[in-house]
Design a binder for these strands. Structure first.
Lengths: 389, 389
DNA sequence: CTGTTAGCGCATTCAG
DNA sequence: CTGAATGCGCTAACAG
C-alpha cells in the first residue's frame, strides 16, 4: 500500500531535511539559505519530537492513550515551535468547527452590543471563535436557519438573540448536531435566558399606580425584523392586567408603537402628548424609547417627574444620566449566561461524540426551564406623584 | 496509480448508488430505507450533473474555463440540491478562509458597536464571515498579532480598531498574506480611516473661545487597553495650540483623565469643579465622558450652557437627547468604509493570487493616505457665552 | 473546455 | 501505548 502516497512522503521528508524545523521558530528566518517550509505542520512537530503524527495529535489534545513523559516531550516541542493546529484541517478531519455564531437583529444599540460583549468574552475564554451575524429581516433568518446543512459546516452552535425560530428549524439543527441557545425566547431542551416580561409590565404598572396615576400611556410596539415580538406583548399583558386589577381603564389606544428605537419613542410620545386627554404618566417598554420620549417632553416644555412621569425598561447605562426611572434587567449577564450554558453543553456532547444513535448535540432535559434573571424597579426622578395641574 | 484510493472511489460510488442524491434535497429524508449520505459533497453534484468535480468547482466559482451551458446546468443542479461547499475544505485546499476578523478594545459602548455594525454589514454583503475579538489588554493584542502564523490560517484579513500595531507586526502580517486595515490609526500602505484629531481639538477650542471662555478644562486622558492613545494626544495638541494662539494660558493641569468612559467623565468633572479656579467651560474628548460630566454638573446644580459650558466629541446618538454641543465625526461610516476598502483589496489580491514573488496581500501604494472623514461642529445648548457670575 | 489526480493538515480507525 | 494508513471535501495543477 505504498501506492501514490509514496512520492508525497518523499517530498515531505525532503522538505523537513532541507530547512529543518528550527528555521520556523522565529519570524525572521530570511537569513537561511534554503527557504524554510512556509507552514508549520504537525509533521514537523512529530519529527522533532521523534514520534508519529498520531501521537502528537493525541498528546496535544489531552487524549488518554499517551504516556505522560511522551506527552510532555511533545508539548514542549510544540511550545518551542509555537505550533498551532490549522483550524481548517481540524474542522475538515474532525467535523467540529470550534466556532460559535451569534445571530441578532442588529449590532447597533446598547442592549444588543451588551449581549454580544458578554457572549464574546465567554467564548474567547473557552477558546472558541466567535462570529456575529446580523439578521435584520425574517428572510435573513430563514436563509440562515433553513440552510442548516450549510450552517453545520460553519459553526458548532448558534446563539439566537431575540430571533424567533420554528420547531422544524430547531429539529433540523438538532439533527445536524448544531448546538442552540436563545436569549429573549425559550426553546425547550436548549439553554435559554429570558426575563419575565409580564412581571416587567406589572412592576411598571404597580409603580405608576402607587404614585396615583390613572391616565397612563404606553410606548411599546413591535420592533422591526424577526425579533420575538411576544416581548412587547407580554409586557403589555402584565401591565394591563395590573391596571385592570386596580380598576383603571385600559385601552389599546393608549399603546403606541415606538419601534424600540430612540426616534420611535420620540414620535410615540409626541403622539401621546397630542391626545385630547393627555396621560399623566407613560410606560416606555425600553429605555431607549424613553429617551426619545424625554426629548418630546423637553420640546413641549414639560418637566419630567413633575408635569409628567416616565418609566422605562432596561436600566440602560445612560438612564442614570437623565435620571430615568426604569425596570432593570441585568442585560450584561444575558450574553455571558447563555454562552456559559452553551459551552457546557458543547463540552458534554463532545465527550459523548461517537455515541451512536443520538445526535451529537440535541435537546437536553436539563434545559426545560429557561434561566430567568431577576428584574427590579430602579426609582429615579423621572416618576413622581401625580400633580394637580 | 489506482493504488489505495481505489477502495475509496468504490465506496463513494456505492454511497452514491445506494441512497441517490435525491434523498438529500429535503431535510426530512427519514422515510428512505437506506440512510442517505449525511453530507452533500461536490461529488454528488458532479454525478448528478454528469461532469467532473473540477468542472463543478470551476462552474460554481465563476471561473472562466467553462462553457456557459455547462455552467448553467451545474448551477441548476447545485441549486436544486441546495449544495454549498464546505468552508473548511475550501480553506484547507485553497488557503483562503473567507473570513474577516475585527479586533477592538471592547465590544461595549456606542462608538465601538457602531463601528462593528458598519463593518459587519459590508462583510456580510461581500459573502465573508465576520469574526469579532476583543483585545482589551496589550497582552491580548500581542498574543493576537505575534502569532500571526496562527492568524494566517484563521482569517484572510484583520481590521484593527483603535488598536496599535508595531511595524514588525505589520511586516509579519504582510509576509503571511493577511490583509490589514485600521481605524483610528494609519498604517502606510494599508486601508485606514482616521479623522484629523488635531482638527477636532482645534474646532472645540475655537468654539469655546468664540463664546468668550478663557478658563477651560479638558477631560481626556489615556483610555485603558491597547487603544492608540495618540488620539487624545492629538486632540490635546490641536486644542492647546489654538488656545495658545489666542494667548490663553494652557497648562496640562487642566487636562484630567476621564478614561473615555461615562464614570471617568463624571470623576474628572467632579475634580475640575473642585478646583480653586473653576473653569467656565469644559472640553470632553468624547460624548460619553461629557455625559458623565453632565451628571456631575447636575449634582452641583450647575445649569449646563449657562453656568458652565460643555462640549464633547462624536455626536453620540444620545447627544441630542441631552442637547450636548459636540464635534461630530461620522462614526457609522468608519466601519463600513474600511471594510469596503479591505474587501476591494482582498478581491484584487485574490485575482493576483499565484503571482510569484509578491505576497498575496501586501502593502499597496493606493493606501498611502488614510481616509479622513470630515468632522464638524454641532452646536446645541450645552455651550453658551460666558456668564458674568 | 473538461477530466484526473495529488495534496491541503489533521483526526482517526486499525494493527502492532 | 504507539505508528501507519486512510479520508474529510475541495482546489489546483496537469493532461487530454
Amino acid at each position: 500500500m505504498q501506492g501514490p502516497t509514496g512520492t508525497t512522503d518523499v517530498m515531505k521528508a525532503l522538505t523537513l531535511a532541507r530547512g529543518g524545523v528550527r528555521d520556523m521558530v522565529s519570524d525572521d528566518s530570511d537569513t537561511t539559505i534554503h527557504a524554510p517550509p512556509r507552514r508549520l505542520t504537525i509533521e514537523h512537530v512529530a519529527a522533532e519530537a521523534g514520534v508519529s503524527v498520531a501521537t502528537v495529535s493525541r498528546a496535544l489534545r489531552g487524549l488518554p492513550n499517551v504516556t505522560p513523559s511522551t506527552r510532555e516531550r511533545v508539548r514542549a516541542v510544540a511550545d518551542r515551535l509555537n505550533y498551532h493546529p490549522d483550524p481548517a484541517a481540524t474542522r475538515l478531519a474532525a467535523g467540529r468547527t470550534g466556532t460559535v455564531t451569534l445571530a441578532i437583529p442588529s449590532l447597533f444599540g446598547w442592549y444588543f452590543s451588551t449581549v454580544i460583549a458578554g457572549a464574546e468574552a465567554v467564548c474567547a475564554d473557552a477558546g472558541l471563535e466567535f462570529q456575529v451575524i446580523a439578521v435584520s429581516t425574517p428572510t435573513h433568518r430563514d436563509r440562515l436557519l433553513d440552510e442548516s446543512r450549510r450552517l453545520e459546516r460553519r459553526t458548532d452552535a448558534l446563539i439566537l438573540v431575540d430571533v424567533t425560530i420554528e420547531p422544524e428549524q430547531v429539529a433540523s439543527l438538532e439533527r445536524r448536531g448544531v448546538g442552540l441557545a436563545t436569549i429573549g425566547s425559550n426553546v425547550v431542551g436548549h439553554p435559554s435566558v429570558c426575563i419575565d416580561d409580564e412581571l416587567v409590565g406589572q412592576i411598571a404598572a404597580e409603580h405608576l399606580l402607587a404614585l396615583g396615576h390613572r391616565r397612563i400611556g404606553v410606548i411599546g410596539g413591535r420592533p422591526e425584523g424577526p425579533m420575538s415580538f411576544d416581548v412587547p406583548e407580554a409586557r403589555w399583558r402584565g401591565f394591563s392586567r395590573e391596571l385592570a386589577a386596580a380598576d383603571v381603564a385600559v385601552d389599546h389606544e393608549c399603546n403606541v408603537n415606538g419601534n424600540f428605537s430612540l426616534d420611535g419613542g420620540y414620535e410615540a410620545m409626541t403622539q401621546l402628548l397630542r391626545a385630547p386627554s393627555r396621560p399623566t404618566a407613560v410606560f416606555a417598554m425600553s429605555d431607549e424609547m424613553a429617551f426619545g420620549a424625554l426629548m418630546a417632553c423637553n420640546e413641549h416644555s414639560l418637566r419630567v417627574g413633575t408635569d409628567i412621569s416616565l418609566i422605562g425598561v432596561d436600566d440602560h447605562e445612560f438612564s442614570r444620566v437623565v435620571d430615568l426611572t426604569t425596570v432593570r434587567q441585568p442585560v450584561a449577564d444575558h450574553g455571558s449566561v447563555v454562552a456559559r450554558l452553551l459551552v457546557a453543553a458543547l463540552r458534554k456532547s463532545a465527550r459523548h461524540a461517537g455515541d451512536p444513535g443520538e445526535p451529537v448535540v440535541g435537546a437536553s432535559d436539563e434545559h426545560d426551564e429557561p434561566v430567568r434573571p431577576a428584574v427590579s424597579l430602579v426609582e429615579r426622578s423621572s416618576t413622581g406623584s401625580i400633580s394637580c395641574t
